[in-house]
Design a protein around this nucleic acid. Structure first.
Lengths: 237, 237
DNA sequence: TTCACTAAGTGTCAGTTGGTCACTTATGGT
DNA sequence: ACCATAAGTGACCAACTGACACTTAGTGAA
């Protein structure tokens, strides 16, 4: 079938288009764990199972795919996460029993504190530790998607300071190192970590300190405009 | 609109789903240049303009998105490229005048020799040098997509030997270096390049040599099973 | 006020990697 | 036999990274 034939069938409605959704793997750091935001499905198929937050494109409200994902995340968390990046698109004939489906997935990071109030008002949404999630049986192929998002996040933790977006605006270097360690799953050398971060010149010293047992730690924030230049070495993506 | 309402509208046909296509940026190395395979559009919209090869998902023929992209590339080149990787998905309300559209894009590499015979039989398909393409006015947002694919390919040329897939099965290290240099757009140091490649242990010495002025060059081939382990350093993608 | 405890942050050295460039090697042609 | 040409290597230096001991700045108890 060529393009002309396809479009003729499509316009007649005699062609079944794939179901298109936009989903997000939203990470945060809470209680020393890396957590993922999941939603309990209230509709068939896969009713009752945990799934990634997401939904259908709204041709009225959305101009871009990013509009869709941020709209959906705002519905669940009340805020737009500071970091959102496309992860990949998963599609196929068998991933949804209704037939061919395609989901465009995003990875996002947020400080859990930023959306605490909203989350308390919704019962079917929860932060779940990624280690626990990996043993669960999620809806569709969402576990595969989460695994891919985690793999990518590990790479980012090794070569960038993007994990900082999982923390509140002000944070200490030891805190940031903990986030990296939890993401990667193994301890990092303090000196090497700090060197890497400092060389990147992507953090701004707020001048403030935080004290709680031991020497006070300097509070840093992500430098303005570091959105696209968050990489420590001259790698990209 | 929640999921239930959406699905009700969708099933009634009262909801206009986005037009979903799968496209590919297929690169090759020919005559000292990096080239991209483009197709001249024979249908509205954008009729007559050059566009990326691609098309609609066939719910009969395709089980996965990779099936769609390889099927489409085989239609144009006669063969399935040895390297195909998802690049990203581009969607929005304005990129196609017909309304909301989504295109899932792939990057692919192939030796131009592998598809020469087929290409001679199709008149509206051509290898165009990327430098020329960047100054052209392509259909839809395809130039933006090609630029993104090129940026990603540059990163791969810096840290992997994936560009080897743009060459025939057997090639010399100086040839591979040329491909990398053309992709990156600047010369590379011979010794550093060779060290990087050798350390990766991803090439197999075929035992053969190729002579044409000067000392004969050793012919290498990509090691079997190096498909997913093509990276020189322990980076990922 | 002094001392112990804790955790942040630094100094330093050794091993590794990467850039540079001159050198050697293998071939064909004069 | 020698030269031209291009492949492939040796060797040095600078930069980066890991490892770990050390110093520093705070709290709280004697």
């Amino acid at each position: 079938m060529n393009e002309k034939e396809f479009l003729a069938a499509y316009n007649k409605g005699s062609f079944e288009a794939p179901l298109v959704t936009v989903d997000a793997v939203l990470f945060t750091y809470q209680d020393g764990q890396l957590k993922v935001l999941l939603v309990e499905r209230s509709n068939h198929p896969e009713k009752g199972k945990w799934a990634l937050p997401g939904g259908f494109i709204s041709e009225n409200e959305d101009k871009t795919l990013e509009d869709t994902v941020t709209r959906k995340l705002k519905e669940k968390t009340g805020v737009v996460p500071p970091y959102v990046e496309q992860l990949g698109t998963f599609g196929g004939a068998c991933r949804d029993k209704r037939g061919w489906s395609v989901t465009i997935c995003y990875t996002a990071l947020i400080a859990h504190q930023a959306c605490e109030s909203k989350l308390e008002t919704i019962s079917d949404v929860a932060w779940l530790p990624i280690e626990k999630v990996k043993k669960m049986h999620l809806a569709f192929d969402h576990l595969k998607i989460i695994n891919k998002a985690h793999e990518r996040l590990i790479q980012k933790a090794l070569y960038s300071i993007i994990p900082a977006y999982a923390l509140p605006r002000k944070f200490t270097l030891p805190e940031l190192q903990q986030v990296h360690e939890v993401i990667i799953g193994k301890p990092l050398q303090k000196k090497s970590f700090r060197r890497r971060i400092e060389q990147a010149e992507l953090l701004a010293d707020t001048g403030e300190k935080r004290t709680e047992r031991g020497r006070p730690a300097t509070l840093y924030s992500l430098r303005a405009g570091s959105g696209k230049y968050t990489f420590v070495r001259n790698l990209e993506q």
